[in-house]
Design a binder for these strands. Structure first.
Length: 861
RNA sequence: GCCCCUGUGGCGGAACUGGUAGACGCGGCAGACUCAAAAUCUGUUUUCUUCGGAAGUGGGAGUUCGAGUCUCCCCGGGGGCACCA
């Protein structure tokens, strides 16, 4: 063995093993193997320029799983790439006059160099960058396939329009009704946009959530809510004096007998019809629009109604006519943009009815209530009743429960030809057009006579022009002198390219398939490669992607499946959402944010290092540039090493909870790394030359052997369940056990060595560098990274004697050591003989003695 | 308003299907080594205590031989959704 330095030099060691892994292509994988496959993927980063602690946590978690599975004998795919289209690149272009491509590629280079010292087990041969034509040309082909399959279409819809920047903004880019950069009030504008038919898969996307057992319930709930399936009925009310009908959607057809009016959206065609020359209505619409769409505005918004001259016939009751209002609470985007209102059983309708003096009629009463009394109280009050109950005052529905009454009402509507049962979804088709330069061009040509014509496949890719300017607002593709001017592929006439680009969620909707076959130049990936690797076994990322990215990717995979490009439907079998990395916040006397590095903490107080002026310590929040509570991963790795940083990311906090970054925490991890080193470099006794198991094990040696084997099982289980914090705790316990050994028992040296080697084998996924270094230093020649995961031996897991706690009336009074197979009667006798038990019982005889084998004895006195 | 998560020492957090509450770490305290400091090591660290014990997992009830864990009600913290008919 090599002589070990007294102190561990992490800089040298970490560099050494990283170089070894790179040169040996240790983590490069093939798409064929006789081992079972395991695909571990972390959400790929946006190349913003610098890695942050969130990245470190994310990629450490994934790396531990990847290394663990690799050791367990899986063929592990653990790739990395760059989600490199997006707005920040264009902002940089505008602010710093640098081309988005240059900015992005330089950032990738920087960030890749920052990832390198983390020691991640990544197959870099599969690296991808989504802004390169080699990547995005495939998604242009996919889009053409979607068009053919009827999964993509163009329609005019309302969008958030920034009048200063002349571009569409995503909902997230609208802050308090204003553009996030320009600060100008956002306008609603109708614009022709490309959509993908995610709604075709609404039911499947919802149903399949139940099969995703390895997803957090939270995410499944959020997607369920987002898809928003509701079952109800469409009803066609006869408009009196007109030929047409008013179509409404309701989830409560059982309350039709309580209907008192209908209400339509201000954007409903009937409302628009009335708008011509009607100043009162125009004023009303203006008033509604002025309320705004912010949460607070809606919360306090008054119910506003405008009575139209229209009336509709009640579908069930002859001769009853209902007035039609235009109301601010009815949304054109949901259902049919029209509702019938039953004030007694809907709070919103109740508020509206009270305000405008409309009738209120109770038609459902709780099971146990006296119907007449209940109805009278309900109709006199201001509180609607929306609970379950029995139909009353409802003719043929009377006596039915809500569910049965809904069915009966729908049957009757169908029989009368005035309605039908229907399912309504909240989710809407995915608008993918963006008036942006730094995205994938939408491969379509607009011809005055042929319309929107797909770019012929042989003309792909449609690449972004390099020579663009950002000196005026709007889309540089639109301003480009020549790029958009082309001829129609159909008729040869002068035509224009589509100048919109795809939403950048497009790229992240299939990158996991690209990693399976990253060099494929024909279809983006070979279906066979995707079949082999997909679905991703463990996907890891932030909860912020619970709906958007994760839903788009699930849809996209289904769409590719429909087009025959892929055989799976669900891209991610297991999903793990990690918590945020947080840090205390600091402010100076003027209330400006301060960097932790500028602050000197002394107990509960803090001062500015520069001049000693007082600093206010704020609550711990997600690390963010704006609050300056960030810690640079590069500096941390530089001063503590990657292993210490990785270990800290895994210790203490469960990975799905927020992690509080502290100096003392990273110090603690660093101390552990040093301690681990001393275990081998400065042992209390010579465990290497004396290691001999011929005489068996005794005392501390036996205890170490037992703990080592128990730890193998415990840590294996913890890692499989992603309970890294408890795995670390158990490894520390084993470390303590080994460190406490004195070398005096039979087999001490052998047990010490076995314990240490076990520890290294179990900790190598977390702290790969030091584990590998010690492994070799104590004489192993096969790299630890290629050593199979340890297996616990049964003989060390069995205990001859067990300690039983003895309770009297549920309170602990002592304990007894008994043989594992001791008879119940003997155990009882021993427990009762304990002085502490005698004291408690006094003269009384025990009423009952409960013996739970290998656990507890409870004496009831 | 609806839905979800969460509440355990000074702090982060352990506690498998109900069975020794506080593993492991951070911080603190005391001591050793040192001229001194750092590092390291040893001990101690839920609270109260008449040193026998007693209380204790946000609060209150319940089920049980036994509850941090299960049930019901209430309170606090965090997050998501929402004029969704």
């Amino acid at each position: 063995m090599t002589r070990m330095e007294e102190r561990y030099n992490f800089r040298e060691t970490e560099q050494k093993w990283q170089t070894y892994w790179n040169e040996n292509e240790t983590f490069k994988v093939e798409n064929v193997s006789d081992k079972p496959k395991c695909y571990v993927l972390e959400m790929f980063p946006y190349p913003s320029g610098r890695i942050h602690m969130g990245h470190v946590r994310n990629y450490t978690l994934g790396d531990v799983i990847a290394r663990f599975r690799r050791a367990q004998g899986f063929n592990v795919l653990h790739p990395m790439g760059w989600d490199s289209f997006g707005l920040p690149a264009e902002n940089a272009a505008i602010e710093n006059k640098v081309h988005p491509a240059k900015w992005t590629r330089e950032n990738i280079k920087t960030m890749k160099a920052q990832f390198q010292p983390m020691g991640l087990s990544i197959d870099w041969s599969r690296e991808i960058s989504t802004c390169e034509p080699e990547y995005y040309k495939h998604e242009q082909k996919m889009f053409l396939d979607f068009l053919k399959a009827g999964l993509a279409y163009r329609k005019t819809s309302m969008v958030n329009w920034d009048p200063v920047e002349n571009t569409v903004l995503a909902n997230e880019q609208v802050v308090d009704g204003c553009g996030w950069r320009s600060g100008a009030p956002v306008e609603r504008k109708e614009l022709a946009q490309w959509f993908l038919k995610i709604t075709d898969y609404a039911d499947d996307l919802l149903e399949a959530l139940q099969t995703l057992e390895d997803w957090p319930d939270r995410v499944r709930t959020m997607q369920t809510n987002w898809i928003g399936k509701s079952e109800g009925a469409r009803i066609w009310f006869d408009l009196i004096g007109r030929d047409d009908k008013l179509e409404v959607y309701t989830t409560r057809p059982d309350t039709l007998y309580g209907a008192s009016f209908c209400a339509i959206s201000i954007n409903h065609p009937l409302a628009k019809e009335l708008m011509d020359g009607n100043d009162d209505l125009a004023a009303f619409v203006a008033k509604c629009n002025a309320i705004g769409t912010s949460e607070a505005a809606i919360e306090t918004a008054e119910k506003l109604g405008f009575l139209t001259p229209y009336k509709v016939k009640h579908p069930f009751i002859d001769g009853v006519e209902l007035p039609v209002y235009i109301a601010n609470f009815v949304l054109m985007e949901y259902g049919t943009g029209a509702v019938f209102a039953c004030p007694a059983h809907d709070q919103r309708d109740m508020d509206f009815a009270r305000k405008y003096g409309l009738p209120i009629k109770a038609v459902v009463a709780p099971k146990d209530a006296d119907a007449a009394t209940f109805a009278a109280e309900l109709e006199a009050g201001n509180e609607a009743f929306s609970g379950d109950g029995i139909a009353i005052n409802s003719d043929f529905l009377n006596g039915l429960g809500v569910t049965e009454a809904k069915h009966a009402a729908i049957e009757k509507l169908k029989a009368l030809g005035v309605g039908e049962g229907t399912v309504q979804f909240r989710i809407r088709d995915w608008g993918v057009s963006r008036q942006r330069y730094w995205g994938c061009p939408i491969p379509v040509i607009h011809c005055p006579s042929c319309g929107a014509v797909p770019v012929p496949e042989q003309d792909l890719p449609v690449t972004l022009p390099e020579d663009v300017t950002f000196d005026k607002p709007g889309n540089p593709l639109d301003h480009h002198p020549t790029w958009k001017h082309v001829t129609c592929p159909c008729c040869g006439a002068k035509a224009q390219r589509e100048t919109d680009t795809f939403d950048t969620f497009f790229e992240s909707s299939w990158y996991f398939a690209r990693f399976c076959d990253a060099d494929n130049d024909t279809t983006g990936f070979d279906p066979k490669a995707a079949d082999y690797w997909l679905p991703v076994d463990q996907y890891i990322g932030g909860i912020e992607h619970a709906v958007m990215h994760l839903l788009y990717a699930r849809f996209f995979t289904r769409a590719l499946n429909t087009c025959g490009s892929i055989s799976v439907k669900e891209p991610f079998k297991g999903l793990f959402t990690q918590g945020m990395v947080c840090h205390e916040t600091y402010k100076d006397e003027d209330g400006s944010w301060l960097y932790p590095g500028d602050v000197d903490k002394q107990g509960d107080k803090a001062v500015l290092i520069e001049n000693g002026s007082p600093v206010t310590i704020g609550r711990s929040e997600k690390m963010s540039k704006s609050k300056k509570n960030t810690v640079d991963p590069g500096k941390i790795i530089e001063s503590y090493g990657a292993d210490a940083a990785r270990l800290f990311m895994l210790s203490d906090s469960p990975p799905d909870r927020d992690l509080e970054w502290t100096e003392s925490g990273i110090d603690g991890s660093w101390r552990y790394i040093q301690r681990l080193w001393r275990l081998a470099a400065q042992p209390k006794f010579d465990f290497l030359s004396q290691a001999d198991t011929a005489d068996g094990f005794d005392g501390e040696a036996e205890a170490t052997m037992k703990l080592a084997h128990a730890t193998i099982n415990a840590v294996t289980d913890d890692l499989a369940k992603l309970r890294f914090n408890t795995a670390v705790a158990k490894l520390r316990e084993l470390t303590n056990q080994i460190a406490d050994m004195k070398g005096e028992a039979k087999g001490s040296a052998a047990a010490y060595r076995f314990g240490l080697e076990t520890l290294l084998q179990l900790i190598v996924p977390m702290t790969p560098h030091i584990a590998e270094e010690i492994w070799h230093a104590i004489g192993n020649t096969t790299p630890l990274v290629d050593t199979p995961w340890p297996q616990a031996e049964d003989k060390w897991l069995i205990n001859d004697t067990v300690t039983l706690v003895v309770q009297v009336n549920g309170k602990k009074r002592g304990s007894i050591d008994v043989a594992a197979d001791a008879a119940t009667a003997d155990i009882e006798a021993m427990a009762l003989a304990l002085p502490a038990v005698q004291n408690q019982l006094g003269d009384r005889a025990p009423k009952k003695v409960i013996v739970v084998p290998k656990r507890i004895v409870n004496i009831v006195g």
